[in-house]
Write a protein that binds this DNA or RNA. Structure first.
Lengths: 112, 112
DNA sequence: TTGACACATTCCAATATGGGAATATAATAG
DNA sequence: CTATTATATTCCCATATTGGAATGTGTCAA
């Protein structure tokens, strides 16, 4: 078999840096394809293709208005990523806390 | 060009479901390759190969003890993923709050 | 109907992938 | 030194991918 297709889930869709950029650029607002083209300075087929992948995994939704298509982020589809990664947060937080303690101890040592 | 290599960053490494499973299985504990083989019931080369990818992006670290190699998760490398996805949390949380409010209203309606 | 605009799709090439099977390497025991 | 254990690497294949260029489709305006 080959690599998991990009359209398989949010993890794979978002692995591509440009698609992360696209989702961020879109953010909370609704934008037309041409607005995205201008905002990111990519060429139009590239934007359409990336939007296509994101749409297939439900990360963006499309709304047709005249000859425009307005896209918006469907953030809920990012939840599986959030849920998977969040449990690991404590590890680097713990490290930071320990580092803070060490730095605290060093300060005390200095002033003595 | 082709797709971004799996060894390019944590996002790509973790896009593969098996590697997510591997990281979770490893969790906080240090395990040898054979322990992982038994735990996950994969064949040995598969485990080694996936560990290789994770090691290249720094998601796991290796420690040699005799003829064993003990692997552990380096959770900090997951932080970029956490940082990227966290800002979107508010969107689905907002939805949940709204849903809670709706349900609350429905309850009140029922008991009246 | 014709043109112009907004966007999507197709075709191409180069490249990487993950799985299975086989084989190589390293370390220890005897 | 040899056998064995623990792990890594190589080879092969089928399959997707991204970007660029070209082309197709749908909608509005005159």
């Amino acid at each position: 078999m080959a690599r998991t297709p990009t359209t398989h889930d949010a993890f794979n869709a978002v692995a591509e840096p440009k698609r992360r950029q696209l989702i961020q650029a879109l953010g909370a607002q609704e934008l037309s394809v041409n607005e995205i083209v201008e905002l990111l300075n990519w060429n139009q087929p590239s934007v359409s293709k990336h939007l296509g992948v994101l749409k297939q995994v439900g990360l963006v939704e499309e709304r047709r208005v005249g000859r425009q298509r307005l896209y918006r982020v469907n953030a809920e589809r990012l939840k599986p990523i959030f849920d998977w990664v969040t449990p690991f947060e404590k590890y680097w937080n713990e490290s930071f806390e320990r580092l803070d303690m060490v730095l605290e101890e060093m300060k005390k040592g200095e002033t003595k």
